[in-house]
Design a protein around this nucleic acid. Structure first.
Length: 575
RNA sequence: CGGGGAGUAGCGCAGCUUGGUAGCGCAUCUGUUUUGGGAACAGAGGGUCGCAGGUUCAAAUCCUGUCUCCCCGACCA
């Protein structure tokens, strides 16, 4: 492609509304333009990157026997009512009414519509297993879209759905897609991690996320450097690095004492001279979404509560909300900072770290007072002891093979074993060999296509611009033709351009009548992995420059050997 | 939805406090000189100042309403 015919426009200045590097670079490079909050036009370069990623996805999925289809983007209400998600999905589902007064929504996820599609065709055990996928637009009416393509309202997603006879078969399908995803991300040449994840409201109980590592990632990951264990902090088991024994101390008597002004763990710790870790704090949550059902959660003062773990422990639909100060006062008779489990009539859940303690300090449910010498079992009865805290860096890996490290990541893929959640609700069944009706076992597998493109930039850039991995680069080579008016120079550049294309290398040739500095700046910004410079000055000595965008290392090569040098460099950059 | 900020030329901004009929840089167009890391000079085009009311002889500027966008939070894959 020649720049002069390409509709590529770059900006000299940074856009003010872009906060993170990848978003800034995509806008500056003209890769995307925003139409409205969370809605973007993909320019010609971004579109090429998307197509390259889609091709890789298709190759890897087709290789393991997945079948591509295209599902409707506009979907009828009735199917969503069948699974109950017309209401459950909340406001992220964009609903509208047709002129014949039928209700529809835009596809936010496609379990319903594909389960409907499959149940109409599949009758016999002979029809399964099958895994179908599509690459299509999704629309989710985000409360707050941001970061360009990383959290857009409309975005491109590859979603696959597996349909199996048995749970065993579904697990096999899950593993098959897992392995295909690993190959996809390996081919992209990105640093990624597969982590254990929470399954959210999609349902099911086996779930892994594929994260592209990046400083600005919204998710916190805990990774064991000495094994393949990795988990999203939401679900990562929290195991103290130093395994301690229950305190052997004898139980002391319960005693109430004044703690004026000590409302926070920090001030309490300073006031009493007890480390934060050895204090016990009481937090309050409402575990019902439409009524008032408070519970108390006890944690060590130094720990942070993990609401997802409460959700999973109690089998809630969503993580519970913390009580407001007023609600706490209603339950405890004291304001937060002086509350504790002794004498409460609501269930008390105890973080496992606390269960080892004896004779600890808690709020006395009387403003300005605490108890000391508190012991569970004697002074109050915990409902359950469980892992309820956030895991942190330095905690022990659950496989016992080392201490966890924290990374940040961008969730690019998420795979779930669904079981029969949707197939049961929608009566997606087959007849087994005995002629008995059985419910289909399902899995679903998402991969954010547009998000992955931007996440790649988030991981691969420097102060001058993007540094595309070869697999995702819109073009492998950026050819700077420095003196387009000089016939000799122009002829050589065009020969190299044609030669490379004929050898299967895609080239963007900057043939504008701009000054060299402008072309170099744009080449750095746009980020093709290899830059070739053809100019009058070099050509006088018979030299062409071949530059590696990442290292900026320059090779001076002859006109004749230029194409082969370029191909060699492109090949060497493939990861 | 709560808190904060902003809408003035394609992009980035000033002007608003103290009303007087719109300006700067970049980009664009023409010409000349330049030409290996965002050139210089000269000239030109381009804006119902987000929208709707109101106050006033007069509103980008003051008042009211409204829409949109950005940031933090809550929510979400």
């Amino acid at each position: 492609m020649k720049w002069s015919e390409s509709h590529i426009y770059t900006l000299k200045e940074d856009p003010t509304d872009a906060e993170i590097p990848s978003h800034r670079l995509m806008v500056r490079g003209g890769y995307i333009k925003k139409s409205a909050q969370g809605l973007h036009t993909y320019g010609p370069l971004a579109t090429r990157s998307l197509r390259k990623l889609e091709t890789i996805i298709r190759e890897e999925l087709d290789k393991v026997g997945c079948v591509e289809i295209l599902l409707p983007f506009v979907q009828p209400k009735e199917l969503w009512v069948e699974t109950g998600r017309w209401g459950e999905m909340g406001k992220s589902l964009l609903k509208f009414v047709s002129r014949t007064n039928q209700e529809f929504c835009l596809g936010a996820t496609h379990e319903e519509i594909i389960t409907d599609y499959v149940r109409r065709d599949v009758q016999s055990y002979r029809d399964l297993p099958v895994t179908l996928y599509q690459i299509n637009t999704k629309y989710r009416d985000e409360i707050r879209a941001r970061f360009g393509l990383l959290r857009a309202r409309e975005f491109i997603m590859k979603d696959a759905y597996s349909f199996d006879l048995t749970e065993e078969g579904a697990v096999k399908s899950y593993q098959k897609l897992h392995d295909a995803y690993v190959r996809i991300f390996e081919r992209l040449g990105l640093d990624f991690r597969v982590v254990v994840a929470d399954s959210g409201n999609i349902g099911g109980n086996r779930s892994q996320e594929f994260h592209i590592l990046a400083e600005s990632g919204e998710d916190e990951l805990l990774v064991c450097p000495d094994s393949d264990f990795a988990a999203n902090v939401e679900v990562c088991p929290a195991i103290d690095a130093e395994l301690s024994e229950p305190s052997p101390a004898a139980e002391e008597p319960l005693e109430k004492f004044a703690t004026p002004g000590m409302k926070k763990i920090k001030t309490l710790s300073e006031g009493l001279g007890i480390p934060e870790r050895e204090l016990v704090k009481s937090l309050f949550f409402n575990i019902s979404e439409n009524s008032f059902q408070p519970i108390c959660v006890l944690l060590r003062g130094s720990d942070e509560v993990n609401p997802v773990k409460i959700k999973n422990l109690l089998g809630l639909a969503n993580p519970p909300e913390m009580l407001t100060d007023e609600e706490v006062h209603k339950v405890c008779g004291a304001w937060p900072g002086s509350c504790g489990p002794v004498g409460l009539s609501i269930p008390v859940y105890m973080e496992q770290g606390v269960s080892l303690y004896k004779n600890y300090v808690v709020g006395a449910n009387d403003d300005g007072f605490h108890y000391k010498g508190v012991n569970h079992g004697r002074d109050f009865q915990p409902e359950k002891v469980a892992d309820l805290r956030m895991a942190v860096e330095g905690d022990r890996s659950p496989d016992g093979k080392g201490l966890l490290k924290v990374y940040r990541g961008i969730e690019a893929g998420h795979i779930f074993y669904l079981g029969t959640k949707y197939s049961k609700a929608m009566k997606a069944e087959y007849l087994d060999k005995e002629g008995q009706s059985q419910t289909i076992e399902m899995g679903c597998y998402g991969l954010g296509v547009s998000r992955t493109i931007q996440a790649a930039i988030e991981q691969c850039h420097d102060k001058d611009g993007i540094i595309w991995p070869v697999a995702l680069a819109p073009y492998s080579v950026h050819l700077c033709l420095l003196d387009p008016e000089n016939d000799d120079v122009s002829r050589v550049a065009h020969e190299i351009y044609e030669k490379l294309w004929s050898q299967g290398i895609d080239v963007l040739m900057d043939d504008r009548s701009e000054r060299p500095g402008v072309k170099f700046k744009d080449a750095d910004l746009l980020g093709m992995p290899v830059r070739v410079t053809v100019g009058g000055r070099g050509l006088q000595n018979g030299e062409i420059e071949v530059v590696d965008r990442q290292s900026k290392a320059v090779q001076k090569v002859s006109v004749e050997s230029a194409p082969s040098s370029v191909i060699k460099l492109v090949e060497s950059l493939k990861r």
